[in-house]
Design a protein around this nucleic acid. Sequence first.
DNA 1: GAGTCCATGTCGTCC
DNA 2: GGACGACGTGGACTC
Lengths: 219, 219
Amino acid sequence: MRLVIARCQVDYVGRLTAHLPMAQRLLMVKADGSVLVHSDGGSYKPLNWMSPPCWLIEEPGTWVVQNKAGEKLVISIEEVLHDSKHELGVDPGLVKDGVEAHLQELLAEHVTTLGEGWSLVRREFPTAIGPVDLMCRDSGGASVAVEIKRRGEIDGVEQLTRYLELLNRDPLLAPVSGVFAAQLIKPQARTLAEDRGIRCVVLDYDTLRGTESDDLRLF
Amino acid sequence: MRLVIARCQVDYVGRLTAHLPMAQRLLMVKADGSVLVHSDGGSYKPLNWMSPPCWLIEEPGTWVVQNKAGEKLVISIEEVLHDSKHELGVDPGLVKDGVEAHLQELLAEHVTTLGEGWSLVRREFPTAIGPVDLMCRDSGGASVAVEIKRRGEIDGVEQLTRYLELLNRDPLLAPVSGVFAAQLIKPQARTLAEDRGIRCVVLDYDTLRGTESDDLRLF
DNA sequence: GAGTCCATGTCGTCC
DNA sequence: GGACGACGTGGACTC
């Protein structure tokens, strides 16, 4: 990784056109050739950048970074205040927990959270327009499609509605009802869902995990 | 801005839980207290970070960055390989061109691109669930709601569908038809749109801009 | 503050 | 490689 602090001006031409006037910034050149232009504030997003795979051509006072698609980043350098290189090696990568995939696993294992006597047909139940998170049967044997979200918003309700519309055309499955399950359900999403006859269920991640721990403790 | 190259381990606890094993990385501390942890590859997104406003408490071998919401980033430092500080000053900021807002402007000025004799009622036509990009009248005086996207995907069709459903309840406007206009329309979005009686129009940014230039040349 | 929508979104995964 | 959905989405803008 190369770190350069420089007074520079940056122009990007690609999916859009963008210009950064002359000012002092950090230029970060990663081992894969990608370049990031950071200011001393804002958030984690650089002011400008080029993602790998891309190539940096360095001339005195001008860097040109290009990718295969023809997007181009031109950096004009007026003054270099710092320039250092560092060997970091390959990163072992991030380990995450608590995301939707895990919620789905937990709920699949404890499908009775949704109703007494319910059973799981399968996770990622395939349809022509994409997989339904969980397909279940309720205690009466009726099909229920379950959409799981961390944050339940209007998009998720639309998604489940599309699935239900399609699934209910299949005479082997119909009638299929819907459950919208999320750690947090926004009021507007709840209103839309209930208006469409979709049941809303708020999930508690710790309780689901706790249930799992309890199960394990039985052995 | 402070740049530290260090062998470190990072743990984030907040909206999710994430862990980075011990390895060499760049730690960037910005003037506003925000912290970014970068590896020597990937793209512009840091492996881990804390956005401002947040506070860094530095102890020997351990940094703790926290925000008001209680999210926490704990960085355990085993070895420091580089540590430098730089005064960058405030950045003048980025100037952009070619985004959706500009597409909307251009199409609003050249609404006849959509059809002979069409006229613009208004941009950002207000509805209870959000503004419609363009409200037009066709040559016969019928209302047309236009949704503009840079990339036309399924979400955009759903959005326009919601607007149309609402607008068609208004006897003063109904019947309202829909146009889905985008620089690129994904096949699935096109299928869904046309299935719902929504017309799809592919926009050419340069042609729209060219049309504008021609107009200007007349003066 | 909540709701809504754009983004050079980026990122993973599945096909 | 393309399509699709999640994201610690972030950020801007409206009400």
